[in-house]
Design a protein around this nucleic acid. Sequence first.
RNA 1: CGGGAUGUGGUGUAGUGGUAGCACGCGUACUUUGGGAGUACGUAGCCCGAGUUCGAAUCUCGGCGUCCCGACCA
Length: 488
Amino acid sequence: MNNRKITKRTEDYSRWYLDLIEAAELADSSSVRGCMVFRPNGYALWENIQKVLGSAFKVLGIQNAYFPLFIPKNLIEKEAKHVEGFAKECAVVTHHRLEANEEGVLVPTGLLEEPLVVRPTSETIIYSSFQRWIHSYRDLPLLINQWANVVRWEMRPRPFLRTTEFLWQEGHTAHSTEEEAGEMTMRMIEVYRRFVEDHLAIPVVIGKKSEQEKFAGALYTTCLEALMQDGKALQAATSHMLGQNFAKAFDVKFSDQGGEEQFVWQTSWGLSTRIIGALIMVHGDDKGVIIPPKIAALHAVIIPVAVEVGGKEIVQRAYTVAAKLQEQLGITVKIDEGEGRVGAKFFEWEKKGVPIRIEIGPKELAANSLIVVRRDTGEKVLVDDVGVVAHVENTLAAIQKNLFEKALQRQNEHSKKVNSWDEFKEKAVGSGGFLYSHWCGDVACESQIKKETLATIRCIPLNSEDEQGKCVRCGGDSPRRVIFAKAY
RNA sequence: CGGGAUGUGGUGUAGUGGUAGCACGCGUACUUUGGGAGUACGUAGCCCGAGUUCGAAUCUCGGCGUCCCGACCA
C-alpha cells in the first residue's frame, strides 16, 4: 500500500491530479506511448458508466453493434473535411507480418497495398455499412451505438483526459428528415447532461461549438462543458448534427413514401473515459478522490475497530450490517478485516473515495449502534442499529446532492460576465473560469484571442438570451455572449 | 512537430572527478492497534554506448527515455 501523502490541490494541480489517480489505484501509465492501464478500480467506474448510459440508450431504442478496428484508408478519404480533421493524428497499419533478419531482429514485411487506419472514430466504417443497410424509409430511423476503443495519436497525452488509445461509446444514427436528425442531436446531448449531472454530480453547460471547434465533417456540434477546480474547462461529451455530409460521401440513400431517392440525415455522439478524469478533478480533495454514490462500485466500507477487545462479536456485527445494507439497498459493502491500524484503513478508503465509512467497535457493540462517516464532509454520526439502513440510504443521497451542489457553486463563482479586454486577459491568464463575453463571430478574432490568452470558445450556451454587445477583443457587433475558457 | 528541462533501488531524492547515501515501500520478527505505528535485521540503484582521465553518477559526444510549455485534441 502506498502511504505517500497527496499533493495539496493548491500547490501543483497537475501533480495533485496524478496523485489522486495513483492513490485511488485507478490507473497506471503504461510502457506504450501515451497509453494507460486501467486498474480494476478505474475499470469498475467505466463499467458502471456503461451500465447506466447503456440502459438510457435502450429506452430510446438505440441498439449496440460493433464495427472493425481497421478502416481502409480510402474510406477515411471520402469526406474531405473529415480527412482534414483527423489525418494528422492517425495510427496507420502498413505491414501484415514480422520476419527475423540476420541479427534476429524482427522487421515488418508484407507491405499492404491499401494501408489500414486504426479508427480515430468510426463514422466512415459505420456509414459504409449504413449504405448497405438502408434502402427504404421503413429502415429509418436507424439508431446504433458502439462501445469501443479508438486511437488518436495526440502529441500530449494525459491520463484519462487525452490518451493515445481511449475507450468510449459512439452513437450513429440515420434519419429521413433534417428536423428529426436535429431533434436526435439535441435529445442525445440532453441524455448526456442528465447522466453527467445526475449520476456523476458534475454540473455542465450545454452549448454549440464555434465553427473552428466543431467536429470535422459536422454541420454543427453540441457539447457539454464542465469546469475543473483549477478554473480550466473540460469538454465532457459531444453530439453532432452531421447533416447530409457523410450520407453524400458514402451514398447513404433511401426511397421515401413518394418513391423518391433521398440522402439520409445523420447524427453522431460520444462520451469517453475522459469523463472519469473530470470526475476526479471536480470532486477530488486533498485526501483523495470522491466517488459519487450513484456511480460508485463500492458504496460503504465497514471497519471493525479494536477487535481484540470486543472479540469476534464485532466482526459478526459487521457482517450482519453489511448483509442488511446489501439486501435492502442493493449497494455494495466491504468489510475491511485486514491487518493494521484503523487510522491507516481510514486513510486508505478516503483516498479511494468510498462514500461512506462505518465503524463498529466495543462501545458501539455495547450500545447497539454504529458510527457512520461521510467521505465528502467528514461528518461522523452515531446511529442506532435499527435505523442504519434508512440512515445510509439518506446519507448516500445527501452525498450525491452535496457533491453536485458544491461543484455547481464553484462553477457559478468562476463564471463571470467579462466586458473589457483588460479584465478578460487578467482572468484568462489568472483564476480562469467560464468567461461570458461578447464575440464578433469572426474566426480570425477567435484565433487571436486564443493566441494572446490561451482561452478558447468552449461553447455558445444554448440557454443564453440574445443581448447586443461589442466583441471583447475587436469591438465588433455581437448578438450574444459566448463562453471562453482555458481548456484541457 | 517547435521551445525548455531531466534521467541515481519499486517510489521520491542527496551526491560539482576519489568508499553511492537518505526517506518511503517491500520482507522477517517482536511490541503495538478508537486517525497514516515503533524497534531490530534484511531487500534493492547510477538509462544505453563511446570518449577524456590513474580514477566518471559527476566532464564531452551520440543515442534512447521521461516530464514541462506550446501547436493539436474527446
